[in-house]
């Protein structure tokens, strides 16, 4: 393999590459979402105990999964940025945080909308719900910390530390339903065990999760391009890009 990865780790080469990738991921996300919604609403049967209310699962679980996955990926980029002093990695971490926060919020609110009719309450302070709320605070803390420090390099470092410390919360969220007595039910999908869901329900949920994943890549790339433009405004490559832009060349 002779691909020079370091070539793509500089913003000026990654910027156009990201621009080319966005439409692909956006279309994939749209197609998968349509397929997932069709399976979720038209093909998946009603549930034996929750009736139609269970269909909230098709947004709730994918959003909750993404909230955790994005945090791990974000912390990973932040760690690489911290260790290698790579500015693109730090920008990737920064680009992922708002999307992660939005998915966390979606998971919390849809969970609440599901809890009210099924459990009989909008909210309880059990380990699963509390740790997911802490995840939202971690995302918001990361965003706030980064934006409160003017020097981007120092902001990256401070953000990275917070992101890394917060990683411990992710396994706590995931295993909370195993480790403690919670109102939230256990996982329907476990490693090494048959899923506790009818096949079409499971399929719809997995396709929706894939759609959310593709959406995340698309918006994270959109955001990282904005961050590059904003942060490197005075650099030669952005100026070059702007000159082309003024001349009508699409970038």
């Amino acid at each position: 393999m002779n691909i020079n990865w370091f070539k793509y780790s500089s913003p000026q080469t990654f910027y156009p590459l990201a621009g080319k990738m966005i439409p692909w991921f956006a279309w994939l996300a749209a197609i998968l979402a349509v397929a997932g919604l069709y399976i979720g609403f038209a093909i998946a049967p009603t549930d034996f105990q929750q009736g139609e209310a269970y269909r909230i699962i098709f947004v709730h679980v994918p959003a909750a999964w993404m909230s955790m996955v994005i945090y791990i990926v974000m912390a990973g980029w932040a760690a690489i940025g911290l260790a290698l002093n790579a500015r693109l990695s730090a920008m990737m971490a920064q680009a992922l945080a708002p999307t992660g926060a939005i998915f966390t919020l979606i998971a919390l609110v849809t969970g609440s909308l599901w809890g009210k009719p099924m459990w009989g309450t909008w909210w309880v302070w059990d380990a699963r719900l509390t740790s997911e709320l802490i995840l939202l605070f971690l995302y918001l803390g990361f965003i706030a910390l980064q934006s409160s420090i003017d020097d981007p390099r120092r902001a990256d470092r401070a953000g990275a530390l917070l992101a890394l410390v917060g990683v411990v919360n992710v396994p706590i969220i995931y295993f909370s339903v195993k480790w403690w007595n919670t109102l939230h039910q256990g996982s329907s999908i476990n490693m090494g065990a048959a899923p506790k869901m009818a096949a079409t329900m499971l399929l719809g949920m997995l396709i929706m999760a894939l759609a959310f994943w593709m959406y995340t890549v698309a918006v994270a790339l959109m955001r990282v391009r904005c961050i590059m433009l904003e942060r490197e405004r005075t650099s030669d490559w952005v100026k070059e890009l702007s000159v082309q832009g003024i001349a009508g060349v699409k970038s």
Partner: peptide, 11 residues
């Protein structure tokens, strides 16, 4: 939605 329209569609 089997009577759960508000919760499902809001979500």
């Amino acid at each position: 939605m089997g009577g759960y329209a508000f919760y499902v569609w809001f979500s």
